[in-house]
Design a protein around this nucleic acid. Structure first.
Lengths: 127, 127
DNA sequence: TAATCTTTTAGGAATCAATCCTAAAAGGAG
DNA sequence: CTCCTTTTAGGATTGATTCCTAAAAGATTA
């Protein structure tokens, strides 16, 4: 395990944020200025392969990385792109499986909405 | 409605395939050789905006377009990337909504598996 | 610890999907 | 047909990501 790998993994797992490779690169360079961009991409890919973290493809935007590798839903604001984790529901997964003709190895569920901040005004969501 | 737009829309809606912009471009050029790549991308974007078709972001691959704009699950082979439509289940959507703290505007559910062709051998799926 | 072999890195070039730019062509209203 | 607006072709450009290579770091063994 190289220092670079450790650093990158640490940044992803330290916070629940869903950061892009570029954001991770910037944060990492604050601690290791010589770190190369390619190293970040390569290690993120390896961490994903090993099942330690998860890659989230975003609509019309760079991918983001999630410290939780197990399948779980994400709530995404259509306007600002903010990503929020939702708890994986066994009940939901069961419903999904029940509908399927084949066994699945994982899923990716993105739920779109407009977050309170983007809905404007001060009030949010009472209506 | 320009001829280019009509042609592109026609290609997407003609078949249940989920084609990439590049594939659509190739098919369209067979009928209109002067068509520009940018025109294909721009019109696909406009068709998506108008809600006539749907864009599917694919993991580590170019986006694909679906002639069905309403939210519905997709079954995707992890190995070859083949995309298959699944029927939108009102029951499933209800389960999803029931779990949520906020109203959603749409969803994107990708279910991953290994398709029979990729599972190797001749038999498929009896086991 | 030194020698050796393997893996990973830095740095930058290259790729690929997608977007942007501009003059010319097409649509469309009157 | 004329004027005005929108869209196109064609190609340059961008932005995320991958690839390349010599050098550095890690690991292994003696």
């Amino acid at each position: 395990m190289t220092r670079q790998r450790q650093l990158i993994y640490g940044i992803v797992t330290a916070a629940p944020e869903h950061r892009t490779a570029e954001e991770i690169y910037d944060l990492a360079r604050a601690q290791m200025p010589s770190l190369a961009r390619g190293t970040v991409y390569r290690n993120l890919g390896l961490l994903v392969q090993e099942g330690l973290i998860r890659k989230l493809e975003m609509p019309d935007a760079p991918a983001r990385y999630d410290r939780e590798p197990r399948s779980h839903p994400h709530l995404i604001c259509q306007r600002c792109g903010r990503v929020e984790d939702l708890a994986a529901s066994e009940q939901l997964l069961a419903s999904i499986r029940a509908e399927l003709p084949v066994p699945i190895t994982g899923y990716d569920l993105k739920l779109y909405h407009i977050c309170p901040a983007c809905r404007g005004g001060g009030k949010d969501g009472i209506a």
